[in-house]
């Protein structure tokens, strides 16, 4: 059987007003970022529940990135501050459980920062590629569910 080379499959939760628009902009500017990322649009980075990250890893996704507006610029005033706090807490849990830091990342990207969004995704995917496929946390029972 032909062994297809493993490609990381990562999920990005991008906030609608800044990061998602930034990714859109990089697209219209024809800047390339890896196809490995699947973007899920959310209204605000504050919408992200830590469960999303865990469920994603459970489902075999190799990495998760959450991206929001720059501090002070949140479209909803304070959502990204709450996201940052939640992220700080869940980071400790993930470390404890043994999930490599390269797998779960957090970034601030503004709507005008097309090149930065492409760069962030690029670097993230490379980071995940380095730590290899997510075998430890994939819930095998979920296969085919």
């Amino acid at each position: 059987m032909e062994e297809t080379k493993w490609e990381p499959k990562v999920v990005g939760f991008l906030c609608h007003w800044c990061s998602y628009a930034g990714a859109d902009l990089s697209g219209s500017a024809r800047l390339e970022y890896p196809h490995n990322i699947r973007i899920i649009r959310i209204p605000c980075s504050g919408r992200v529940d830590p469960m999303f990250i865990l469920r994603a890893l459970q489902n075999g996704v190799d990495g998760v990135i959450v991206s929001g507006c720059h501090p002070g610029d949140c479209h909803y005033q304070s959502g990204n501050f709450h996201a940052r706090r939640k992220f700080a807490v869940i980071r400790r849990l993930l470390d404890y459980v043994g999930i490599e830091p390269e797998r779960v990342q957090f970034s601030w990207v503004a709507a005008s920062e097309g090149p930065k969004m492409a760069q962030v995704i690029n670097e993230f995917v490379e980071g995940v590629r380095k730590v290899g496929p997510n075998r430890l946390f994939k819930d095998e029972r979920r296969d085919g569910e």
Binding site: V11, I40, P43, G46, R47, M51, F52, H75, G79, E145
Partner: peptide
């Protein structure tokens, strides 16, 4: 914005159009 949804401990508040279930479904598909 949904900040309330991710804060609620008993999952009793939901954001129409962007519920936890809808996001999990997206995740599954991805």
């Amino acid at each position: 914005c949904g900040a309330c949804v991710s804060t609620c401990r008993s999952s009793c508040i939901m954001l129409r159009g962007m519920t936890d279930e809808q996001i999990f479904d997206e995740l599954m598909a991805v």
